[in-house]
């Protein structure tokens, strides 16, 4: 199934764009997706942290994704 991926900060620089599509298996979790993401963009594994958000909330590794869901990649935050 397809996911709509949104990227910010250094994650956007690594991907070279702020939006991409990715394919994952039905009932894939964030953990499954993270593995695919790092396979596609190995530089993401070198980041100090890598978090994910769905519908403006952080989600854990065991969150089950749905078709066409928008997943936002949250690299290490540095506001303030």
């Amino acid at each position: 199934m397809k996911l709509n991926i949104v990227l910010f900060g250094i994650a956007k620089d690594i991907a070279g764009t702020s939006r991409i599509d990715m394919e994952v298996e039905e009932k894939a979790t964030i953990a499954n997706f993270k593995t695919k993401l790092i396979n596609r963009f190995p530089e993401m594994e070198k980041l100090a942290s890598l978090a994910f958000a769905v519908d403006t909330e952080y989600v854990n590794d065991d969150y089950v994704l749905r078709e066409n869901e928008e997943v936002v990649i949250i690299p290490p935050v540095s506001g303030g």
Binding site: F8, G9, I10, A53, V72, I74, P75, V77, S78, G79, G80
Partner: peptide, 11 residues
């Protein structure tokens, strides 16, 4: 807390 949780990035 803002520096830990709020999705804002600084270059």
């Amino acid at each position: 807390t803002l520096k830990e949780t709020v999705p804002i990035w600084k270059k």
